[in-house]
Every structure is written in structure tokens, then in C-alpha cells.
Simulated scan of single mutants.
Amino acid sequence: MGVVFKLVKADRGFLALLDEETGELVPKAVRRREDLTDTSSLTISQGIIKRVMDKGTSLLISDALTDERFKKRDSIVSQNIRSCLCVPLKSRNKILGFIHVDTLTTSDSFSKDDLRLLSAIGAQAGIALENARLFEQVQELMFGSIRALVATIEAKAPYWRYHSQRVADIGVLIAKELGLSPEEQKTVELAALLHDVGKIGTPETILHKEGTLTPQQKAVVHSHSSRGANIISNIKGIEDIVQTVRHHHERFDGSGYPNGLKGVSIPLYSRIIALADAYDAMTSIRPYRENIPLAEVISEIKKKAGEQFDPEIVSALLSALSRQGVEVPEQK
């Protein structure tokens, strides 16, 4: 609404979107002149809004108090609404909401040029909103497909069930604590869901083995991060995720695999998932052991900061756990 107020001289402005599930209009932005402090001045004319939403056409009202279509409506009289512009937000003939601006003191405040300008803004905003919704639907479909794939892989070993989703949840928790943007948090979530996809090529005899792995078997296990990166490398636009999957077993001191990267040369998302993965592994039951008590897990994570894990990532996880009520002893 800030942009709209810069372009047209209005006392009040409103933007509302139609909830697709309930069919109700939900206010998303409200703007008014600074000297309008009375909360009642936020009431809007339902008659004007209904006409715009029903017909899908823009309205320019020079003086609502004398306009035969609206002058008898209570909201017009009680709010003393004079000039008004109201335009629908549309995309492909689908009405998504509206933008409404008005004045409370003077009539004839808006021109046809103002109407054309606001209508153009409404049209562009409608297209942007529809594209955002379509993107969200595609993203939900993609995440659903990935979860189905991951569930198929994790079905190879019962103790794996929901491991990738838990790693994703922990990874997003860390990402939020680090102040990463919502888009970056989504990337962390997707990379975490895919981090073990390379295990689809690991023999079940190795995955289920309870004893010590032979050097050859260890090499097979260690190859899963590169294999996973190669599997997803043909998907366009996810280069960050490919590199995250490839390097999520690197260690902060450079002793990890596959490339022995060290410190911040390891991708940030890989450093996040490395800790999230280890945290879930330690707190979950494995064929060869029970889950480790949380106090011991925290102690081990602290001990490995700077060696296996990025100390900043460790601090973020411990802070996030503390916020959730987990008792995190002070570092000695």
C-alpha cells in the first residue's frame, strides 16, 4: 500500500485477498493518513467491495454520499466516505482480491488517470499473486514426490524411517536460529530430505550389518554422498542442493569425505545438515545400539565443535534447543 499512497492522494487504503478455502476476504494491508487515529476509521464499505468483487470491474466514485448506488449504505454515511477508487486483483479472469483507496473529507479527489493507474497496479499484482500461488502448489507437489521417494529408500531399513524428515526439521531449526531467509530455509529442508538419496545404491547387507564394516564396505557407504549428488545433478535449478548433498559428510577439520573440505570451504547448508544428521543419528535407535541420552548427545556435540562440526552451527543448534526447553549445560 505504500507504493499506492505515493501515486494517489488518499486518506485510507486497503488490500484484501480472497481465501480459496473459505471464500472470505482476508485483509492483508491497511494504510491511512497519520492524523487518522480513530480505529473506527478502518471500516470499509461492503457495498463497494461487493460490487467490485461480483462484477470484477474497477470503480471510480466521485462522491459516495451523493452516489445513488451507495449513498444510503450505513458504512458510507458513518465513515463519511467521499471519493473512492476500488479495483479487483485479477489473473486469467479469476478475482483474487481488491485494492481500495478513499478520502473522508473531499469529493472528486481521484481522476480517470488515477483509476487507470490503480487498475494497472491491480492487474500486475493479481498476476504476481497467481504466479506465487502456482509456485507454491508446484513446490508442494515437488516436496510430496521427494518425500515419497525418500520413504521408499528408508523402507530398506526400518530404523531409517522418517530419518530424513527429522534431519530436515532439525536443519530448518538451525537455519532459523542462524537468521537464514525463508527461501534459504526451504533449500536446507529440501537438501536434508535428499541428503541420503545416494543410499539407494547401497546393498542392504551393508545397511543392516550390525558389526564393524570392512574397509571395502566403508568405501561403499562413503560413496553414497557423491552418488546422491550425481543422481539429482540432472535436475535444473538445484545446484546448491547438489553440492549440499555431495558434501554433507565433510568435517570441519578437513578429515571428512568425499573431498576433505575444511572449515567454511564446506558449503553452509552441508555444515548445517552434517550436524542435524549426526544429532538425529545419536538420538535415534540403531541396530547396534539404543539411542544415546540427550545430555550425552549435547556433550558429544560440544566436544566435536571445531573438529567435526562448525562451532557456529553447534551454537545455533544448542540455542534453538534451549528455546524449546531442552536443558543445555553451559560450556566449560
Rank of each mutant, 00 (worst) to 15 (best):
E290P: 01
L117I: 09
Q79N: 01
Q331Y: 01
E204T: 02
I127A: 10
L134Q: 15
K209Y: 09
R69C: 00
R251Y: 09
P182E: 07
M1Y: 08
R323S: 14
V220N: 03
T39Y: 05
A278G: 06
S145Y: 11
S58T: 00
G97Y: 04
D253W: 03
L129P: 06
Q79M: 08
L193P: 06
V264L: 14
K28F: 05
T187W: 01
A120E: 11
E330Q: 12
P267Y: 00
S62M: 10
H100Q: 13
L134C: 02
R286D: 00
S255R: 13
Q165K: 04
L89P: 15
P158G: 05
S255N: 07
Q46H: 11
V101T: 04
S270P: 06
A155Q: 12
E136F: 01
L294D: 08
R251T: 00
S40N: 15
G13E: 12
E210D: 09
L18T: 07
G211C: 00
S270I: 03
E34S: 05
Y257E: 13
P329R: 03
L60V: 01
L134G: 03
F70V: 13
P293Q: 11
T37Q: 14
S181A: 12
K112D: 13
V4Q: 11
L141E: 15
E300L: 07
A128D: 09
V172A: 04
R32M: 14
V87D: 02
S119Q: 15
S181F: 03
L194A: 00
R271N: 07
H249I: 05
I273H: 06
T212Y: 10
L118I: 02
T106L: 11
A305I: 07
G237H: 03
D253C: 04
Q324E: 15
K303E: 15
L317K: 05
A281T: 08
D11P: 02
K304I: 06
I232P: 09
K303D: 08
D63N: 09
K332W: 08
I49P: 02
V30S: 08
S45D: 07
S91T: 08
S145L: 14
E296V: 02
K9A: 13
L18Q: 13
D277E: 02
E312G: 00
D74Q: 10
P215N: 12
A157G: 02
N259P: 00
C86H: 10
I313Y: 05
E154Q: 10
E184K: 15
Q124R: 15
V245L: 07
E290G: 03
E327N: 04
L7P: 01
A305L: 06
K55H: 12
E184P: 00
G260T: 02
L207D: 08
Q165A: 11
Q217P: 07
I95L: 13
A132N: 06
T39S: 10
H222V: 10
I48M: 05
S107C: 04
S270G: 09
V172D: 03
P293T: 01
H247A: 03
P329V: 01
A229K: 09
K72N: 15
H208D: 12
L190G: 05
A120H: 11
R251H: 03
A320N: 10
